[in-house]
């Protein structure tokens, strides 16, 4: 059996309940990283570094810019069609001491730094020993920031909520 050098679909943990759950959780985590600002990612990596917990990594690919063809659906729910492309930056890293862990980062826009930090964090996240740190120090921060953004945006547009009235005009009465 060949080593699964490129099959990063499965996290390294053996404790994962099953593959699809583990994938789902990893996907959720990557989503949080992609939607985050760069500052908290940087802060978390710095704090790992200060605690001596940040291992070395090698770039396996990128960071590099490319395109993703964006699809929509007719009517929002029908047949899919191509809307246009979006610029994305991607990066893949391997941990220097644990080469079988491949971390991936994909983020919209021209953001090489974000993509690399994301890839490193994805790789570290796959190490069981670092999991509690992510659960305690990074994920809640990112989730709170995202929630706050949702609420701020919603509050802003909520002020423009409108009720239209239809009125019966007098002329028709007689």
């Amino acid at each position: 059996m060949q080593s699964q050098a490129y099959d990063a679909g499965k996290p390294a943990q053996d404790s994962a309940p099953n593959e699809s759950d583990a994938q789902h959780i990893r996907a959720e985590h990557l989503r949080l990283l992609a939607l985050a600002e760069e500052t908290p990612l940087e802060a978390f990596l710095d704090s790992l570094d200060e605690q001596g917990l940040l291992p070395g990594w090698n770039l396996a690919r990128g960071p590099e810019a490319g395109l993703v063809m964006i699809r929509g659906r007719i009517g929002g729910q029908g047949q899919p069609f191509n809307v246009g492309e979006a610029l994305v930056t991607r990066c893949c890293v391997r941990l220097s001491k644990e080469q079988d862990i491949l971390g991936c980062g994909y983020v919209l826009g021209e953001r090489p730094r974000h993509a690399e930090m994301m890839a490193v964090l994805d790789a570290l996240w796959q190490k069981p020993d670092l999991a509690p740190l992510f659960d305690k120090e990074l994920d809640p921060v990112l989730a709170r920031a995202l929630q706050a953004r949702y609420e701020a945006d919603r509050a802003q547009s909520a002020a423009t909520k409108v009720d239209f009235f239809t009125m019966v005009r007098g002329e028709d009465k007689d």
């Binding site: 080593s3 050098a5 090698n58 770039l59 396996a60 690919r61 080469q99 079988d100």
Partner: peptide, 12 residues
């Protein structure tokens, strides 16, 4: 462990 075949040079 097998050496991974990485390529990180200037692809462009």
């Amino acid at each position: 462990m097998q050496t991974p075949h990485s390529w990180t040079g200037d692809t462009v």
